[in-house]
């Protein structure tokens, strides 16, 4: 039984069946990739996992509890962090503050009225955030504003913000979309280092086959809202149905 169990999920937008009977099981401490051509329903599925969309039917169990009907912040508090396709950071805040916020969320929960104690007195949180920035090689940029970072650094920062919460599951929505080759390789390297340092379960949506095959242990191929096949990367590469539906149009 995996940490994330998706069973029979359906989602319909008007006449479009975005997800049809999707089953997915993500085992703990693995990296599970979801691939598929444009419009296959990858993002819809991800949005169903984090509370942005509610499936019409089916169940999504995380760590033994249902996530359906919960708000995004509640699902995050359960242990799911999400990296967005375009990095979502706090652009008007400093890099250090960006990483401190998830630390506060982890420690204090969804809301706490800590209005008179000063941030400077929160040594523990600061240490934790600085250590995380050290891990992603951004400690020297701690005083910069989020908006002044390069795209690659924004991505790095967003990952640091997710990882500092020590999530049980990290969801990545095309983490290398629109990145230059060098940045993509950096991201892969970063993700692999993070996995070596701390055991983490990842679920990744990706177009770039290079990224998928250098990270994932299991791959699910989605086509027209239904899982076509789920297997190891080596088997996926040679799978005739996958070639037909997806890989035929991409270079491997």
């Amino acid at each position: 039984m995996g940490i994330l169990e998706v069973k029979g999920v359906n989602k319909r937008f008007g006449g479009l069946q975005a997800l049809g009977d999707v089953n997915l099981s993500v085992a703990e401490n693995t990296c599970h990739a979801i691939i598929g051509p444009n419009g296959a329903g990858k993002s819809t599925l991800l949005n169903c996992l984090v509370g942005k969309l509610i499936p019409d039917s089916g169940s999504v169990m995380f760590d033994g509890q249902s996530v359906l009907g919960r708000k995004p912040y509640e699902i995050n508090q359960m242990g799911i962090s999400r990296v967005f396709q375009t990095p979502e950071i706090f652009a008007d805040l400093s890099v250090l503050e960006n990483v401190m916020i998830p630390c506060f969320a982890k420690r204090d929960g969804a809301f706490r009225m800590h209005a008179v104690e000063s941030v400077e007195s929160e040594a523990g949180i600061r240490e934790e955030a600085l250590a995380m920035l050290e891990d992603v090689n951004m400690a020297d940029k701690k005083g910069m504003l989020g908006s002044s970072l390069s795209r690659g650094d924004k991505r790095r920062l967003e990952m640091a913000m997710c990882l500092v919460q020590r999530p049980k599951l990290l969801l990545l929505d095309e983490p290398t979309a629109g990145m230059a080759r060098a940045d993509t390789n950096n991201t892969i390297e970063l993700l692999n280092t993070i996995r070596d340092k701390r055991n983490i379960t990842m679920c990744i949506i990706e177009h770039d086959m290079n990224v998928v095959f250098s990270l994932a242990e299991r791959i699910t191929v989605l086509a027209q809202g239904t899982p076509l096949v789920e297997d190891t990367p080596d088997n996926i590469k040679g799978h005739p149905k996958v070639r037909e539906a997806y890989l035929g149009e991409a270079q491997v």
Binding site: V50, K71, P72, Y73, N76, Q77, S81, R82, F84, E88, I89, F90, A91, D92, L93, E97, M100, I101, P102, F104, A105, K106, D108, G109, A110, F111, R112, M113, H114, A115, V116, E117, S118, V119, E120, E122, G146, M161, Q165
Partner: peptide, 28 residues
């Protein structure tokens, strides 16, 4: 001043900066 410099103050600035990120960071 105390509110501006508190964790609560940072959260309020986070609201202005990016509510989406805030909600996906476990904050209501």
């Amino acid at each position: 001043i105390r509110i501006f410099r508190s964790p609560f103050g940072i959260m309020l600035r986070a609201v202005k900066s990016n509510q989406q990120r805030m909600n996906y960071t476990g904050l209501n």
